[in-house]
């Protein structure tokens, strides 16, 4: 009796597994892109610099009635904590949309035009591609000789070449570095996104000028600006535009530009979105590809 029961249970288990596999096969349309399918929104994790810049530029982050700043990213959005994972996910899902830094684009995904503008280096530089952020450095008052020399290096041909390895250089025709190589110490503080490129710049500069000593604190854009205003740092790094209150106290300049590309699967028939649609997709107001005008 018990044996029959056991066999019965095994049969039911087996049948349910097979049945489960066969049940909804009709939804698998296979070939052809279906615009009526739901958009699979892919985002980055909270705290990521790319996400921070993206939600700020597109207006996903907004003030609510109470004056609180709220990141309105669609709560059904899939969250990945790396550029490569976003790329793999978008490449593997025909209905996905995501965003990555333009420096990491590859041919497995399509970078969408925003308001008809492609995210090329040229368009980002002349400002016609809207989803981009400058990497700024800020200083206050008169500079020490060593600080001035290091800034000259960043803006020189050598410095801008280092910048363009990962981002977009602001000056392609910079003159080669011809500094006086003074000795001294520089303290740099600010954005975690700018820190890696700043560390590369430091390394290259120290090779040219071993007399210098450079300390880099990765504290975040706002903290970096504050440090320069207070005089605790010589150079501040910001991965965004400076706020008006900061502009009043500081001299600043862009050392690089980082574009953020909105990407979808090459099988998708849509290759152009308005900035407004991008915002609506990422806050969940548009949930189907066919709802895009």
């Amino acid at each position: 009796m018990k044996r029959i029961l056991t066999i019965g249970i095994i049969l039911i288990l087996g049948a349910s597994i097979l049945g489960g596999c066969g049940a909804n096969n009709s939804t698998d349309s296979g070939k052809g892109f279906n615009l009526d399918k739901e958009i699979v929104v892919i985002s980055r994790e909270e705290g990521s610099g790319t996400r921070g810049a993206f939600v700020e530029i597109t207006g996903i982050e907004a003030k609510d009635e109470l004056g609180n700043t709220v990141d309105r990213t669609y709560e059904e959005a899939i969250v990945y904590n790396g550029t490569n994972q976003v790329l793999t996910a978008v490449a593997g899902n025909e209905y996905a949309i995501g965003y990555v830094s333009t420096g990491s684009l590859n041919e497995t995904v399509r970078a969408l035009k925003i308001d008809g503008v492609e995210p090329t280096t040229e368009n980002i530089k002349n400002g016609s591609y809207k989803i981009a952020r400058p990497f700024n450095i800020a200083t206050k008052g008169n500079l020490t000789e060593i600080t001035q020399d290091f800034i000259d290096f960043i803006m020189s041909k050598e410095g801008q070449e280092i910048v363009s390895e990962d981002f977009i250089a602001v000056d392609d025709n910079a003159a080669p570095y011809a500094g006086s190589k003074p000795s001294g110490k520089i303290i740099i503080a600010g954005s975690t996104s700018v820190t890696p490129v700043m560390e590369k710049l430091r390394e290259a500069y120290l090779e040219i000028n071993p007399e210098a000593e450079i300390e880099i604190h990765s504290t975040g854009s706002s903290a970096g600006m504050q440090a320069v205003i207070n005089g605790t740092a010589d150079i501040g790094m910001a991965s965004r535009d400076l706020k008006d209150s900061e502009k009043a106290d500081l001299d600043y300049m862009a050392i690089a530009i980082d574009g953020i590309a909105v990407i979808n699967n090459p099988a998708n028939t849509i290759d152009n979105l308005s900035l407004e649609d991008v915002t609506k997709i990422f806050i969940g107001e548009i949930t189907r590809w066919s709802h895009i005008k």
Partner: peptide, 12 residues
Amino acid sequence: VPFISNVFGGNG
């Protein structure tokens, strides 16, 4: 992920 998405629907 693609398998689940094809068989059961959803994004996988």
